[in-house]
Write a protein that binds this DNA or RNA. Sequence first.
DNA 1: ATAACATACAACCAAACGGTTGTATGTTGT
DNA 2: ACAACATACAACCGTTTGGTTGTATGTTAT
Lengths: 116, 116
Amino acid sequence: MDVNETSEDRADAFFHALADRTRRDILRRVLAGEHSVTALAAKYEMSFAAVQKHTAILERAGLITKRRNGREQLASGDVEAVRAVASMLTELEDVWRGRIERIEALLGHHAPDKEN
Amino acid sequence: MDVNETSEDRADAFFHALADRTRRDILRRVLAGEHSVTALAAKYEMSFAAVQKHTAILERAGLITKRRNGREQLASGDVEAVRAVASMLTELEDVWRGRIERIEALLGHHAPDKEN
DNA sequence: ATAACATACAACCAAACGGTTGTATGTTGT
DNA sequence: ACAACATACAACCGTTTGGTTGTATGTTAT
């Protein structure tokens, strides 16, 4: 519907992925170094399948990448994606500072029929 | 269970609040300036009650504050809270850089019985 | 006083979430 | 060849989410 639709979808995926403490913990671990899904699963009290789903969500959001090595799938955190999220927050800070001129472009992409 | 439990709860509330595009949009608007709940509701196609619930979630997360003025409730974005979220991401970046010495304190607070 | 306005909140509903178990598929080691 | 391992995914289930409508309560203006 909008050119910014894609970026809002990305923000949804980013923040939703970060909104779970197990996923944030997994992200910390794989930012510190590569871990197989099995190695990650061993760290938590939940089932392997649950941890596998968490890594899939992080991967779909683009926060981690996976690389096959034999029968293992090695996950790494993508620090560029973390920075992309941080820059979304910086943009919010810029809105607060009034530094954004095209402010209606940013603020007005909902209910365009009810603009005021 | 943990001294950090509170901070994880805060992170849950922050990221969950940010994981919805309507709430992010509301936050942008109230960072740019005070808006009553009714004024905000006029911007979206959903019901007043839906928007009121979104503002309540943002408020409980600490991302916005409300101030009564007569019969209106004026909402403002809290830029310090936005910065607090940003600093959580910076901490993740520090994990990636290997800059965190007390790394097990940060990484090891799940399933402490399964440490390795 | 009373009507209109601004807000809050309960009750309800379909869809999504976070977990489970079970099954299938490919890879490694003996 | 075959058993064990690593992963993926479907099906299911209780809870939470994001929306709705309806009702209650306080505030303002006439």
